[in-house]
Structure formats: structure tokens, C-alpha cells
Amino acid sequence: MKKKVLKYVVGLVLAIACLAASQANAITINAANSVDDFYLSGRLTDEDGYEELCVGEYVYAEAGVYYKDGSLVDPYSYEYISDYVMSEALFEVMGTGDLYYYSSYDTPGAYDAVWFSGSIPQEAFGKYVYYVLGAYVQDGSDTQTVIGDIRSRDPITSFAGTDNLTFCDNGDGKTVSLYSIWKCDKANIPSKVTIGNKVYKVTGVANNALEYKNITSLTIPSTVTSIGKEAFADASKLKTITINSTLKKVGENAFSGINKKATIKIKASKENYDKIVKLIKKAGAPKTVTFKRITK
């Protein structure tokens, strides 16, 4: 894998060097050292600056050039290579002019890479998205070319059934977890969702799922068996929680900071009810919260 990545980077650098040399007043490229002295690093976001990327969104990049020791190169010492030049170079090396690709691997240069342009396609759900970026770096009397594949922080999520809930792939091809709750006062997590043409069972809630802290009501379906760390933390207005599930795992501080007068209704047998209450209390629920067992 590493050899393939190195070959891809060196080939892309050489292609850019050839393109640059063919242009009037082109700068000289020292390709031999281009992958040794510097590296590109950054993050991908949506148009609002959030690092959670969903199917159908356009991708934006924030990046910088760094020395190998991790220190930032003076921004006045480099300039980013234009998308046009990068696109031409990619076509020379990879046979595609697209600057984005998705892959199931969390490191660049994977064999399953699928290149695309425009918004994130449905097929990228559950995979990582990469953006190929380049920069010319002035290094003493030489100008070096640095190429980097900037990766999405997490695998691609998808909105499903509502504009306020996103879901992430659990990796088994059958189930998903609630990934984030956006601007809604009352969230009713569904037991199943359709993403693309496929129906998935909702079995979990991810870490830090609650993006909108002003939520007042939450319903968790019977299919959910696990809740991640700090999933609903600091939701000080969250007063009504209904759990229709036999929870088996609740992450640290998942209920920390919810409303002190909250009522948590749990549909379960007496034995399971006691177990779930214990899990929720251990996960940081205020001592003043009221628990109620419901049977219907």
C-alpha cells in the first residue's frame, strides 16, 4: 500500500512539473525532494464549516504546509496549486481529472478509490472522502512541489427520513447508528431508515450525537441497544426522554447535564428496567431526575 501511495505522489509531482514547465514564466520544480521535506495537512468541511460530511453536500478544504517536524511553514513561503493544474496532472497520472475520491480505507492511495466531482455521491455513504491538494513551496533557492490527500474526519453520514437526524454506517451492511441530532426541539429516533435503496436497522447512538443542545424531548426506539459517550451531554432543556429499548451499553457521561427535573420513561420488564436505570445513573444523569417504568 505504501509503495502505491509513493508512486502515485511522485507521479503526480512529475506530471505537475511537466505542466508547469510548459507554461510561460513557470517556476522550477525540484521534484526529487518533493515528498521528503514537507507535507500538507488540513481538514474537510461542509459549507458551514462542520466536519461531519453528509451525502449530497459539497466539500471544502482548509489546509496548511508543514515541515516534517510538525511545525507550520510560513504561509508566505508557499502557494496552492490551482485546481486546473491539479486536475490536468491527475489526468496524466490517474486517467481522471476529478480531485475528490471516496474509499473504505482511512489512509490514502487505496485500491478501491472512486473518483468524483461535485457533491458527495450516495455511494460514498460509510466511506471516507479525500481531496487531492498541492502546493509550491519556496525552499531557499529551490521551489518544491508538495502533494497531499486531505481526508474527511469520519466516514460519510446521511440524512434519512428527516432533515434533523443523520446516520452512520455500522460496517455490517445491515445496521446504522444515529450520528447527530440537528436543529429540532423534539427528536423521535426511528427504528429503521432507508438510505439509497437500502433499509437499515437503527441499533445505536454515536458519541456526542447531540449537536443541538436546546432539544426538549427525545424518544429512543426498541432497536437501539447502545448509546455512546456524552451522546446527550449538556442538553439542559431536555426534560422528557422515552426509552423503548433494552439498553445494554450506555457510554460515560451520556446523560450528564440534562435537565435536573427531567423525566425518563422506560418501557421494559422490571428486571431490565432496574438495569437500565442503573446504566443511566452511572452515565451522569442528575440525581434529581425522575424514572418511570411504562408497560404500554
Rank of each mutant, 00 (worst) to 15 (best):
G97R: 10
S158E: 03
N244Q: 09
I266M: 02
A160N: 01
Q122T: 14
L165W: 05
S119V: 09
A231T: 01
N164E: 03
F91K: 13
L90E: 04
I156W: 04
I266W: 08
A268V: 06
L238E: 01
I147V: 15
F91R: 12
E57F: 09
S22N: 12
N244V: 04
A187G: 00
Q144E: 12
A254M: 08
A24W: 11
E230G: 06
I241K: 02
L178R: 03
K174F: 13
K275G: 01
S217L: 04
S22E: 08
N208S: 14
G97Y: 02
M1C: 07
S77C: 11
I215M: 15
S236A: 11
S77K: 14
V277D: 01
K68E: 15
G118V: 08
K213F: 10
K4Y: 12
I81M: 06
D149A: 14
F291A: 01
L165N: 01
L247C: 06
D274M: 07
A110D: 15
Y39T: 03
L133T: 07
I16C: 06
S87G: 12
G97D: 14
I241Q: 00
M94E: 15
V224W: 01
V199R: 11
Y80P: 03
E51S: 11
S158Y: 02
F167D: 03
G284M: 09
Y200D: 04
T216S: 14
E51G: 03
Q23V: 09
T290S: 13
N197F: 02
Y128R: 08
Y8P: 06
I241L: 01
V146P: 07
Y128F: 15
E52Q: 11
G196N: 08
D154V: 07
N208Y: 13
D46S: 05
K174L: 12
S177K: 10
I241G: 02
R151Q: 12
E92K: 14
I276Y: 03
A187Y: 03
F291H: 02
V35H: 08
T263W: 05
C168K: 12
Q122N: 13
K248F: 05
D139G: 05
Y8D: 11
T45M: 08
K186D: 10
A187D: 02
W182P: 06
L218R: 02
K249I: 10
P121K: 04
T223V: 09
K237L: 13
K265R: 15
W182E: 06
P221T: 07
T290I: 11
D46W: 04
E62D: 10
L279K: 10
K186V: 15
E52W: 03
P108I: 01
Y131E: 12
A15Q: 08
T225H: 06
G70W: 09
K282G: 07
V73K: 04
E123N: 11
T223H: 07
L210H: 01
K192V: 07
K174E: 15
T162Q: 08
D48N: 15
K249D: 14
K237Y: 15
E123P: 00
Y200T: 05
K296L: 13
F291N: 03
L247T: 05
C18K: 13
K249S: 15
